[in-house]
Nucleic acid binder design. Structure first.
Lengths: 201, 201
DNA sequence: AAACACCCTATGATCGATCATCCGATGTTC
DNA sequence: GAACATCGGATGATCGATCATAGGGTGTTT
C-alpha cells in the first residue's frame, strides 16, 4: 500500500518560512508574527512556533523573550564565521575518510549542467558536493553539525543580501577532486582553503 | 530596581529533564511522556514539548512521528563521534586565536580544588576550561556549535552509562597550557590529541 | 510643553481540550 | 489455534482560547 505521505504541519510551515526568507518576503530585522503566519497557512500557532524554533537553531532568526522572532541581520562577518567553522568541519571529514571521487564527479556534472538553469539548482548541486564529503566521513554527529549550519540557505541569503558572494562553479572544484584522487595528504588543507576562498574576508 | 528574573517555563522544564537524565531517572531507551512530565511540573504540555525539542537538538533524545520522545542509546561509538567533532572544533578555535593562558590556569585551579568535591563540580570546571578555549576564538558560530554538542551532559552520561570514561584531571592539561604559553604552532594538534585521548577508541 | 502615569492594543507564552495515531488486547473466522 | 479484524486506551499533534508582557498612544500634572 502506498505509505501515504504524512508530513507534520511543522515541516510544511518550516518550508514556507524558508521560502519566504530566501524569496525576500522577510528581510533582516523584520519580525515574523506567529499568528499572522498561522492564519495564512490555515493552521494554529503551535506548529508555527515549532518551525520558528527550528529556524532559530539554524541561526536564521532570533527570539527575544516575549518579543517574538525577527530575522537576523546578515553581515559579511557572520558569513565568514560560518565558513570558518564549515571549513574546519569539512577538513575533519576528509581527515576521517577520503570521499568517493566518483560520487563527487557526479555532483560536479550536475553542477555543470545547471550552469544555465535556475540559481536554486546551482546552489543545490554545489552544496550536495560538499555534503557528500561530510557524509562520506561516516560520522553522524559531524554530518548533523554540518547540516545545522544551514549552508544552502545561507548561500541563498548571502547571494541576495550581500551580493559579494561568488557562486561556486564546477571548475573550481577540479583541483580538489584531483587531490582526493591521488590521495594527497594535503587534501584537507586544500579543501579548507577552497572553502575559505568563498568566505569573503 | 531588581530586574526580576523571569525564566520561561520551557527553561525550567529543560533543566528538570536534564537533571533527570543525568540523575538516571530516565535511562537509554526510556520514553519520556509529555503529559506525565507536564503533570508533575504542574504545567501544560506545550513548554514540555519545547524543552524536549531542545534536548533532541542536543542529540540526547529522539523523536519518532506520533510516537514521542525516547532517550537515545549511548554507545562508546557515539561518544567517539562526538569527541572527534569536538576535537576538530577546538583545533579550529586555537588556530583562530591562542587562548588567554591566565584564564585557563584559573580554571585548572578550580578543577584542582574540586578534586575532592562533587563529580558535578569536577565536570563543570573541566568543561569550563575547554569552553574558554573556544570562546577565546571570538567566533560566535563556533561557540554555539560547540555548545550544541552538549559536552557537559555527555560527560556525565558517559561516566554513568559507559563507565570507561576517565575524568579529566588538572595535571593532564599542563602540557596543553604550556604549549599555549610558548605559542607552539603545534598547539592545535596537541589539543586535538588531548581530547581524542578521552574519546575511547 | 515636558515628564510622567495610565490604558489599550498587539502579540508571545501558556493552557485545557480535542483530534489523530499507534499499539496492545480482545474477539472472530476459517 | 493461527491469522486477521476490531476495539479502546495511551499519547503525541494540533487547536482555540486565555494570560501576561511590551510598546505605543493619550491624557494629566506641573
Amino acid at each position: 500500500m502506498k505509505p501515504v505521505v504524512r508530513s507534520p504541519l511543522r515541516d510544511q510551515i518550516r518550508q514556507t518560512l524558508l521560502d519566504g526568507l530566501i524569496g525576500g518576503r522577510w528581510g533582516p530585522g523584520d519580525r515574523i508574527v506567529e499568528r499572522q503566519v498561522a492564519a495564512e497557512a490555515g493552521v494554529s500557532q503551535a506548529p508555527v512556533r515549532e518551525a520558528l524554533r527550528e529556524l532559530a537553531a539554524l541561526r536564521l532568526i532570533e527570539f527575544s523573550p516575549n518579543k517574538g522572532a525577527r530575522v537576523r541581520e546578515l553581515t559579511q562577518a557572520d558569513l565568514h564565521e560560518v565558513y570558518v567553522v564549515r571549513a574546519g568541519l569539512e577538513e575533519t571529514a576528509v581527515r576521517l575518510r577520503r570521499p568517493p571521487v566518483a560520487a563527487l564527479r557526479t555532483h560536479l556534472e550536475h553542477l555543470h549542467e545547471a550552469a544555465g538553469g535556475t540559481l536554486a539548482d546551482q546552489v543545490r548541486h554545489a552544496v550536495a558536493f560538499h555534503r557528500e564529503i561530510v557524509r562520506a566521513a561516516g560520522n553522524e554527529v559531524l554530518l548533523s553539525v554540518w547540516e545545522s549550519l544551514g549552508i544552502e540557505v545561507w548561500t541563498h541569503l548571502s547571494i541576495r543580501l550581500l551580493r559579494t558572494h561568488a557562486l561556486e562553479n564546477a571548475a573550481d572544484h577540479e583541483p580538489l577532486v584531483a587531490a582526493f584522487e591521488r590521495d594527497d595528504p594535503r587534501a584537507g588543507v586544500i579543501l579548507r582553503d577552497h572553502i575559505l576562498a568563498y568566505a569573503g574576508g
